[in-house]
Amino acid sequence: MTETKTITQKEDQIVDDFSLFDDWMSKYEYIIELGKKLPLIDENYKNELYEVKGCQSKVWLNAEMKDGLLYYKADSDAIITKGIISLLIEVLSGNKPEEIKNAEMDFLNKIGLKEHLSPNRANGLNAMINKMKNFAIKYSGENVN
């Protein structure tokens, strides 16, 4: 098994991957592929409680702790959204809650995703990141209690 990579290492990897594409259509194609490959979330989680508000498409997100690391699962009814979630999960999943809490997520700017989203969609993206970080905040307090 490969040891866990840091968040920054994983971000750099994605920035590298995206540098291979020279136009946005190919980036979209890649994101769509990622979306199609995203492991499905259990249907039980597809309810209000796990829904991310602020997205035009529906997004459900859940996180679980295992051996001190936080793992995310998510789904959406739109495939591009799923692809974007897949990137977020790739970067954040399997790390310590403390690291996730403080992640800058700068790669989203570097791959040009933010500038390519309408404000409407950028809101959705921020809502997703917030929800992911909220899980991290919730679980980082856990050992203390």
């Binding site: 259509m25 979209y28 035009q56 498409s57 009814d77 739109a78 495939i79 591009i80 969609r121």
Partner: peptide, 21 residues
């Protein structure tokens, strides 16, 4: 089989402005 949001995003990339939702 395709979410309107996906359609709108790709069209936007082609310079085509539609509304979705």
């Amino acid at each position: 089989g395709i979410h309107p949001y996906d359609t709108g995003s790709i069209l936007d990339n082609l310079g085509i402005a539609v509304r979705t939702g």
